[in-house]
Write a protein that binds this DNA or RNA. Structure first.
Length: 310
DNA sequence: GGTAGACCTGGACGC
DNA sequence: GCGTCCAGGTCTACC
């Protein structure tokens, strides 16, 4: 008999909406079940992996069922990881401030962007999303979990740091990212990444951005994306998808550089919430083509979604 | 500071 | 079934 945790959430939290808000919800080891509207994934805890199934039985409350009993310390650890994934730290006043800045999302209530239980997983997922089409990202994460993850978990920094480049390339299909991922894993497991400093409100976004760009495999796009994953929304992460959005949806014209300038100007009024305003615009565009994201069937839509494919 | 070319994979396409 | 082309962001060398 496994442990069940009851977890309090901010009053405005909505599990289907807030999980199915960013592409990482379809990447292994996450699994969103459309039928039961639940999120399932294994978590790495003190005494080993435990599979969590998260549902929302009522407003303001989540239920997380595990496939084995959890000790007291593991329960605290699991609560922290779930809170990180679901951004339960973003209270209602944060949502209200965002909706004051951009009232377009007040009706749907959108504000939270799904992320991973650890910063390491978020950074690896970001690196596997660079210079590759979305199905490639999906495959890399599936293979990383399959070949390097213990009992279906995402690989730990120690495990990834000890993996041979040839294994990453041959089995996990990460290509030239092999050495960069190993170096990143080494930086994490040797304590060279100061997560407290990265997450401290006292640290300016620009300083975090500059630091992130020094990491292997992290350029301007990835650094902007990781800022968002750290809860810093004052910058955009501009990739080809953003440029496409600028042209097709916002009607911008000119060279990519000119469109980038127009995009930055367009989102400037949203101040510290620029990324959210941009992202929910993009996400709303996907949903007009494919229907609500919490109903997307993983194999059909979610693994192929980019505006180009839609 | 700006830019060209290499880095890999998987899918689309033509034969 | 095979070869070719293309999409995708980062990194290095070079100007």
């Amino acid at each position: 008999m496994g442990t069940t945790l009851n977890i309090a959430t901010p009053a405005d939290f909505d599990l289907p909406r807030d999980v199915c808000s960013y592409g990482y919800f379809v990447l292994a080891p996450n699994r969103w079940d459309v039928q039961s509207q639940s999120l399932t994934r294994p978590l790495n805890l003190h005494d080993g992996p435990a599979k969590a199934s998260i549902t929302q039985p009522a407003k303001g409350r989540l239920r997380a069922g595990f496939d084995r009993p959890l000790s007291r310390s593991e329960q605290a650890q699991a609560r922290a990881k779930i809170a990180r994934m679901l951004r339960l730290d973003e209270a209602e006043d944060h949502t209200k401030a965002f909706h004051r800045a951009d009232p377009r999302w007040k009706r749907s209530g959108r504000s939270r962007l799904f992320r991973s239980p650890t910063l390491f997983e978020d950074i690896v997922k970001t690196v596997t999303s660079c210079n590759v089409t979305w199905p490639g990202t999906v495959n890399m994460n599936t293979q990383l979990v399959r070949h390097l993850g213990r009992k279906g978990c995402f690989p730990t920094p120690v495990r990834l740091a000890r993996t041979r480049p040839g294994t990453l390339r041959g089995r996990c299909r990460v290509g030239y990212r092999d050495q960069r991922l190993i170096e990143l894993a080494n930086l994490f497991h040797t304590g060279h990444i100061d997560e407290h400093w990265l997450q401290s409100p006292a640290t300016p976004d620009d300083d975090v951005f500059d630091f992130l760009k020094t990491l292997p495999g992290i350029g301007p796009y990835a650094a902007g994306n990781i800022l968002m994953l750290l809860g810093r929304y004052s910058r955009l992460a501009i990739d080809t998808e953003t440029i496409r959005h600028g042209k097709a949806v916002l009607g911008f014209t000119g060279s990519d550089q000119q469109i980038t300038t127009q995009l930055n100007a367009h989102y400037e009024p949203f101040g510290p919430f620029k990324f959210k305003s941009y992202w929910f615009e993009l996400w709303a565009h996907y949903e007009t083509k494919q229907g609500p994201s919490h109903l997307w069937k993983r194999e059909e839509t979610a693994t192929a979604f980019t505006a180009n494919n839609l």
